[in-house]
Amino acid sequence: MSEQVTITIDGRELSARRGEKLLWAALRNEIYIPHLCAWPEIEPPEASCRLCYVEIEGRERPVTSCTEPVIEGMVVHTRSPRVDRLVASAFELIMSDHHLNCAKCPQHKRCELQKIARERRLRLRPSRLTALPRRGERDDSLKTIYFDSGRCVLCGRCIWACRELARVGAIGFSRRGYKQAVTTFGDLPLAETACTECGECVEICPVGAFSYKINAGGERESL
């Protein structure tokens, strides 16, 4: 069997590596599928944001494309009434828990949430749901980086980066359910942890939860 397979996404025939996850095959071919928690090296995928739903012909229900290995002849539709409803609903839920203040956010115009809204013509501000109370305080204890949990979408990518790329392990998930949060050991300020301010968390954050501090001159603070 060859390493390459041919799949069809939204009527376009394209070739992909056998076994790779559908989401990455689509993105590489410039077919956008909303996603937050997925990252190519995070294996197995968390599949927690529930935004990357697609329809695959022959399957009863929409599936998450980040968990779906491509196989020869797979026919995929990134849009359908069912997919659109799920994505819109998941997105509205996420936005109801996101402290929305784009003007003051350093990720403005680079934010994955804005991208999803633009691509899928969704509103950033929830319409049928009430915004939930803002979560957490901003942790300003480090010199060059801050963490604003009100912006955090709990995708968990920063936790992976801190552990696997930076080899530090200063942050993790704590609590559960609605109270689940990205925190440090004992909820201590980041400055009291092993954090080296390497910036991997900022680089991987799809929104503006982990951000660099900017000094008066408009430059990134340095250590």
Partner: peptide, 21 residues
């Protein structure tokens, strides 16, 4: 279920919260 949700996935973590409200 809202209290017992593990909190990882969007629908269960936030959806049940809104339903409860």
């Amino acid at each position: 279920t809202q209290q017992e949700s593990c909190g990882q996935c969007t629908f269960c973590r936030l959806g049940t919260r809104h339903m409860l409200d």
